[in-house]
Amino acid sequence: MSDYKVVPGPEAFLPPAAAMMGIELPDPGEGHIEGRIVPEDEAIEHAARKFLGAKVPTIFPGPQILWHWNESAAIKAACVREMAEILPARLIPMADYRPKYPKINPEVEINPNHPNLTIWHNKIDVCLFVGVHCHQANLALKIIRGGTSCYTMAACGMSGHEDACLTIRDVHEDTLRKLTACIKKLKAEGVKSQAEPFEQFRFSREDRKPAYLT
């Protein structure tokens, strides 16, 4: 049994892939917390607590839910929006997979080729990947673990991510609603969000600069 733990970095100049350190992905119905296989519900509750305890909790929605390319994608997008509002958490999209450095604006986007820039710039301490293609998610998760101290979580529609500190797999609308419900329940029980006050940016076509909600 591997005693390797998938904990926040900075881990190494070039951190190893967790899979190469003996970390297996969970089976259906399971998740993992720092590499430890747990029932899905336990991982969901842990994710909710991590989010509530964070100063800069952030959700990174990827192309698979940013685009309304099928009905389920649009529903998941709504679930993610609701989750962000209830937490509260920032939403920063991963709209592009093409490398954008040095043109990237790390305040309003994250990119799988240099995700650390967004983490550093916004001082993100806990994040959730959702709707990002697994290959690009893994690239980003490795780079984040290499050079930042951010706690990474991945809500994956497929097999999950061992390079995240926490993962749940086979995520569909109901899984996202379950996570939101868990956040609500914890809040009702008196767990307070530690999030620092922030303004969610918002883009419009007219104003090419982010307009902040007030």
Binding site: W67, H68, A73, A74, R81, L91, A95, F203, S204
Partner: peptide, 19 residues
């Protein structure tokens, strides 16, 4: 019909995609 942005996250998308 697949080239559209999810309504719930529309305002996060870079304006060049909205355009």
């Amino acid at each position: 019909e697949k080239i559209k942005i999810s309504e719930a996250l529309h305002d996060l998308m870079p304006p060049e995609y909205q355009d």
